[in-house]
């Protein structure tokens, strides 16, 4: 089903839009949720929340890229679960977050408000400056939540190479963020 058709159905408040989205992007979102959460039930709940969330948000928003929008939504919902539930230790998400800790300089400024979109834009600029393999590896690990082994296989590099590339990318990201003044 065409994305536009699905969105039209959403806008018409026709539930077939939901089923269409679920049919087309169900696997995609499930994969992301599983990567981050690890447990099947939690992943399923997360995906269901995604559909709910999308139903609420889509009119008025009309995402240009439905796929990425749904993925992002699912991802953030998974993050919430990770944040507020300590029982999520099994999924790959916690390890992932620990890795991301490296990108932070550790200084705490309680006053500085956190703007996800702006930071995201800064990260985008940084990623564009990276070489394609590093970029893909980074996103597959930290956006799609894949394990390092799966990401390495996806990119066709050995696991060791993938690990070192990711490490280097994280260091470079930290420098970039500091330069942009985003994280202190």
């Amino acid at each position: 089903m065409d994305d536009n058709a699905i969105l039209d159905l959403y806008f018409a408040r026709d539930e077939r839009g939901l089923t269409g989205a679920a049919a087309k992007y169900g696997g995609y979102c499930s994969a992301i949720a599983m990567n981050l959460l690890g447990k099947v039930q939690d992943a399923e709940e997360c995906v269901n929340d995604t559909w709910l969330g999308s139903w609420r948000a889509i009119p008025p928003t009309r995402p240009l890229n439905l796929r990425v929008y749904l993925g992002r939504l699912c991802r953030n919902l998974a993050l919430n679960r990770l944040r507020y539930s300590s029982a999520q230790k099994r999924g790959g998400g916690t390890a992932l977050l620990e890795e991301l800790e490296e990108c932070l300089s550790g200084g705490q400024t309680p006053d500085q408000a956190f703007d996800a979109k702006e930071t995201g834009a800064a990260i985008s600029r940084f990623l564009e400056g990276c070489d394609p393999t590093a970029r893909t590896l980074f996103l597959r690990r930290y956006w799609y939540g894949e394990s390092v082994a799966d990401a390495a296989r996806f990119c066709g590099v050995p696991v060791g190479t993938a690990k070192s590339t990711l490490s280097r990318t994280r260091t470079k990201l930290k420098e970039a963020l500091e330069k942009e003044g985003v994280c202190v």
Binding site: N76, L100, L104, A116, K117, T119, I123, Y142, W143
Partner: peptide, 20 residues
């Protein structure tokens, strides 16, 4: 914090995500 960073990564350009 790291969760915020993770969220921020989520907000990168759609095109980049698609490429990946």
């Amino acid at each position: 914090n790291k969760e915020q960073l993770f969220e921020a990564i989520g907000e990168v350009d759609d095109s980049l995500v698609e490429q990946a």
